[in-house]
Design a protein around this nucleic acid. Structure first.
Length: 463
RNA sequence: GGUCCCAUCGUCUAUCGGUUAGGACACAUGGUUUUCAUCCAUGAAAGAGGGGUUCGAUUCCCCUUGGGACCGCCA
């Protein structure tokens, strides 16, 4: 059995993380079923569709590694086909022109509101042989929706869904300017693209009932539907473009890596036993409809961070280094060529203190910046005794031939004995002098990561 | 308001009638450690409420409550 699915965002705003997850689920399922995953840009809203959003959508998906089959499908290019289908529906008696003016519709809505009853279009023109066609009104085309009976959709995630047909109004398929609406375009395109599985957010559930009627009217095979629960913001509402930290870029700029976000998104609303970490290969093999839950899930930044931390720690250091370079070049200051090798060899300890690439970048500050800024508070910690320790250290350190942990250790130990102090007594002044703060990597790591001259120069500034 | 849906620790979730209700994140405590971390160990933390069905319900059914989605000539 073939498996064709698609992700169909509209370029009327930046793609947020919920959409990304929908795309991921589609893509995973296509891979798993050896099917195809398409990207369709639904740009039939001419007013609001923007080229920049289209680009943002495509680059967001690419960043996560979600690659679509062939070129992206641009819906507006197929409008004439949509219109043809609408005309076909009229001919077949499944659609009709409605001459109600916008004022008339608004009046009806007002009236219903006052009476406290739900507004449904009154189907005035559905069978209007006796009505006079007003000259000054351009008609819209409405689909002749079923009035009686029920429609059942066997949803792959939600199970059997049953709705009374009377709750679906005669929805518009062609606007007064003859342009097709979403219900028509999406249906026609899904059919043309031979989509077998429509996997989308469950805010589309009602649309599936409408669209099914179009498929049936046209005698087309109805695809399988899967409506996945939405992602909620921390406030518990449907994620909107206004929520902060909702677009991919919000995560990229703090140094989240794609593998981690992919894993996080995979586990948001889906599970496989107790497993938390999934390689790409595993997610393709194991992902399924059965594991998708029915209730919406909330975004949790601490989990994203933790997932990122896990991936950073387990990642090949060369690969991590490349990501760090890319990150700093894009969002921070370019890493100087002369510092690259030091950073690379220091990643093995820098990454232990980091949840994000930004953390690594910040922790690398003592390598990247030749002039350290030491806060006055930290400077005040360098008292007479500390200065003596530093002086002694410089003497011993300069005399060292081979610089490694084994040769360094005795120096520190001797200083501890000599000055009757503990490790902190020696380590802290050195760290302040070399890193600029009390916090930082292990003192051996710091010394070994910097070259000898730099260590001496920095320490000499303190005494 | 109408229609539809959902309901296990704070969060993501496991359980598919019988479990001391498990894991992960976050949190707390302790240990390792040269600081901050990492790492390790431990702890606290959940079946919304009420009825049924059943020998037995977190699990099946109903009601209540709470939450959500949809109700555009947007998609």
């Amino acid at each position: 059995m073939s498996f064709n699915c698609r992700f169909a965002p509209s370029p009327t705003g930046p793609l947020h993380i919920g959409g990304v997850r929908t795309a991921l689920f589609n893509w995973l399922l296509a891979k798993k079923n050896k099917g195809k995953y398409f990207l369709r840009i639904e740009d039939t809203d001419k007013e609001r569709s923007k080229e920049e959003f289209k680009k943002q959508i495509i680059s967001s998906l690419a960043w996560l590694g979600i690659e679509h089959e062939g070129e992206e499908y641009i819906q507006s290019k197929n409008i004439s086909k949509h219109v043809t289908v609408a005309e076909d529906l009229i001919k077949k008696g499944f659609a009709y022109a409605c001459y109600c003016s916008e004022e008339e519709i608004n009046e009806q809505k007002e009236k219903c509101k006052k009476q406290g009853i739900p507004y449904v279009y009154n189907r005035k023109w559905r069978d209007a042989k006796d009505l006079k066609i007003p000259k000054d009104v351009k008609p819209v085309i409405r689909f002749k929706s079923k009035i009686s009976g029920n429609t059942i959709i066997k949803d792959l995630v939600q199970g059997e869904r049953n709705i009374s047909n009377s709750t679906i109004e005669d929805f518009i398929i062609l606007r007064k300017d003859k342009s097709p609406t979403y219900q028509l375009s999406a249906t026609v395109d899904d059919h043309e693209m031979k989509i077998t599985h429509v996997i989308r957010g469950d805010d589309h559930m009602i649309n599936s009932f409408k669209q099914k009627q179009i498929y049936d009217a046209m005698g087309w095979e109805v695809p399988k539907f899967a409506h996945i629960p939405l992602i909620h913001s921390e406030k518990g509402k449907k994620l909107s473009k206004r929520d902060n930290a909702s677009t991919i870029n919000d995560y990229i700029k703090i140094g989240i890596i794609p593998e981690a976000l992919r894993n996080y998104l995979l586990r948001l609303g889906w599970s496989y036993k107790d497993k938390e970490i999934f390689s790409l290969k595993e997610s393709i093999e194991l992902f399924n409809f059965e594991g998708i839950g029915k209730s919406p899930s909330k975004l949790d930044m601490s989990r994203i961070l933790s997932m990122n931390e896990t991936y950073i720690k387990s990642m090949n250091e060369k690969k991590l280094f490349d990501k760090l370079l890319e990150f700093s070049n894009k969002f921070k200051i370019n890493i100087d060529k002369s510092k690259e090798s030091i950073i690379l060899k220091s990643l093995n300890f820098l990454k232990n203190k980091a949840k994000t690439l930004e953390d690594i970048y910040n922790n690398s500050g003592y390598i990247l910046n030749d002039n350290l800024k030491i806060s006055s508070e930290d400077k005040s910690l360098i008292d007479k005794k500390s200065k003596d320790i530093i002086k002694n250290f410089i003497e011993d350190f300069e005399a060292l031939k081979d610089l490694n942990k084994t040769s360094l250790e005795p120096i520190i130990k001797n200083l501890i004995d000599k000055h009757k102090t503990n490790f902190k007594g020696v380590g802290q002044p050195l760290r302040i002098g070399l890193v600029g703060t009390k916090f930082g990597p292990g003192i051996y790591d710091i010394i070994l990561s910097l070259d000898k001259a730099t260590v001496i120069n920095r320490l000499k500034k303190l005494v």
